[in-house]
Structure formats: structure tokens, C-alpha cells
């Protein structure tokens, strides 16, 4: 398999198998990290999560839409150093609004059905991270970067 395909596949595998990621945002008081339950679009070009509007992360996103989301498959074991893979998605976050909202929420809930009430709560917002690039780290120090070509993007 060519390297481009293996990297893409490794990224998609992580997106498919992991449920949680660490979201990094920047606010007036500096950087902030929070754990979110995410879902990815089939092509990996978009990542979605739901958050109450009152949270610090949402305030940060409103002020500065640039975010990063770290997703990894470590199991809290020393073997993680060579076996775990981690991907950092870097992109721009914004709240999803109608008419896409129902469709995207459907995708999100297909991944996290137990979050039905949470995702429908009027106090929550569904956030779309439009991914600009993924940085994949494998075997401790092997790093590759997968740039998303959004001009070819027809999914939303």
C-alpha cells in the first residue's frame, strides 16, 4: 500500500475506533484542554462533538475558532510507547446550524446513541471541526502529516 494510503487508513482507523478525544482551545486566559466524545464524517474531513453552551471550551471557540483535537489509542501501559498511535486534528470549529443540524446530529448519534438526550438538549450545541490537517504519530517518534483537500469536499 502506498504511504499516502497507509497514513490515511491509520488516521481513519483511529477516528473509527476511538470515542473520546482531547480538545484544545485557546481563550483569553490561555490554552485549555477538555475531553469530548467525538464522531467523524466518513472521509474524516469533519469531526463533531456536542457541548453545553455555557462551557469554557465553547466560550473559547466563540472567541477563537482555531482548535486541535487529540485522539489516541493508548491503554495506559508502558507498551503504549511503541504500540499506541495518536492523531492530532487541527482545524476550525463552528456551531452547526439548520439545515445541516439534523443530518449531522444523526451521524453523531449513530456513533454515540447514549448521548441522545444530551445532543438534543436546547442548552447544547453541536460543533463541527473542519479539519485542515491531521498529524499522525506512530511507533513513538514517526510523524506524518495528512493535509485535507477541502476543495474536493462534497460531504458536509
Amino acid at each position: 500500500m502506498p504511504q499516502e494510503e497507509t497514513t490515511r487508513q491509520a488516521v481513519l482507523d483511529l477516528l473509527r475506533h476511538q470515542q473520546l478525544g482531547v480538545l484544545s482551545t485557546v481563550g483569553e486566559k490561555g490554552p485549555y484542554a477538555s475531553l469530548v466524545a467525538f464522531a467523524a464524517s466518513g472521509d474524516g474531513h469533519h469531526l463533531y462533538f456536542v457541548t453545553p453552551r455555557t462551557t469554557r471550551k465553547f466560550a473559547n471557540i466563540t472567541a477563537n475558532a482555531a482548535v486541535a483535537l487529540l485522539i489516541n489509542n493508548s491503554i495506559n501501559d508502558p507498551e503504549d510507547f511503541h504500540q499506541a498511535a495518536a492523531v492530532t486534528a487541527v482545524g476550525i470549529a463552528e456551531a452547526v446550524s439548520p439545515p445541516e443540524l439534523d443530518h449531522v446530529r444523526g451521524q453523531y448519534l449513530a456513533r454515540h446513541p447514549y448521548l441522545e438526550d444530551f445532543a438534543h438538549s436546547p442548552s447544547c450545541v453541536l460543533v463541527d471541526i473542519r479539519v485542515d490537517r491531521y498529524i499522525l504519530v506512530e511507533r513513538f517518534q514517526n510523524v506524518s502529516e495528512y493535509r485535507i483537500a477541502h476543495d474536493l469536499d462534497h460531504s458536509a
Binding site: 504511504q3 499516502e4 490515511r8 513513538f140 517518534q141 514517526n142 510523524v143 506524518s144 502529516e145 495528512y146
Partner: peptide, 10 residues
Amino acid sequence: PPLVVDRQIT
């Protein structure tokens, strides 16, 4: 330029 580029290679 390819879509996937290496950043760090060991």
C-alpha cells in the same frame, strides 16, 4: 505535492 507528507521519520 502529496496530500500526506512526513513530518518526523525515525
